[in-house]
Design a protein around this nucleic acid. Structure first.
Lengths: 112, 112
DNA sequence: TGAACGGGTTACCAGCCGGTAACCTTCTTG
DNA sequence: CAAGAAGGTTACCGGCTGGTAACCCGTTCA
């Protein structure tokens, strides 16, 4: 079963945008561009997101391969989230998108 | 009422991704990167999208200011959609995202 | 001893988004 | 004269996403 470039499921950009789709994901990523962060650290750093939703978005970023989760055993067993190589390479692209938005959209603000 | 860079509503990247969010929008944009297209031309060029949904996505791109709709009166009164300056400037960014996806995601295909 | 913290989990719900199918108007073509 | 094309519109519907609120377990601190 050959697919053509028309098939929406195989459109690279669409799939990429799909990985980034999620209300809190860009913000999470911008936090992680600053280095590894603990769960609670992210939670405190991003007001108005619930633990449940934050966790969902992190897990989705993780299964997308953009973020890695590490459990450091010891007590308290801290959990950190950090960008993978794949995720890090998105940095420059998101920054350009950020620039684009700031020059073209009213009322928008730089986050990082 | 000051807002901080934390406020998700003002995160530039998130707003930009919001404009691009929509199942068919990247495909529509890639078609329009090739020049102005008539409604039916787009509809035929993008299999499996209904007129209603295609029109919705086009209208959203239009109110986002990425796409311009022109009615050429005459008969039949053809309607064309083309990128605005703002939309055109997204081109290079989407292409980079496309590149990123093609090197990092399995089974994905270049559309333009 | 009990309160708080870290990192979650569970139950439940509302709204939006995309999808199907039918219909419409004006004009042209066989 | 009927059918089709162009560019839509309308009614209706199911599933996913994000949201709230409460709960949980193990550990450390006052």
């Amino acid at each position: 079963m050959r697919h053509t470039y028309h098939d929406v499921e195989f459109c690279a950009t669409r799939v990429a945008l799909g990985l980034l789709a999620g209300k809190w994901k860009p913000i999470i990523l911008f936090h992680l561009f600053g280095g590894p962060r603990r769960f609670t650290e992210l939670w405190r750093g991003i007001p108005r997101v619930s633990k449940k939703v934050l966790l969902e978005q992190l897990r989705q970023l993780e299964t997308a391969g953009l973020v890695e989760r590490t459990v450091h055993n010891g007590f308290p067993p801290e959990v950190t989230y950090q960008l993978s190589a794949k995720g890090t390479e998105l940095g420059p692209i998101l920054r350009r998108l950020d620039q684009w938005a700031m020059t073209h959209i009213e009322g928008v603000v730089q986050i990082s």
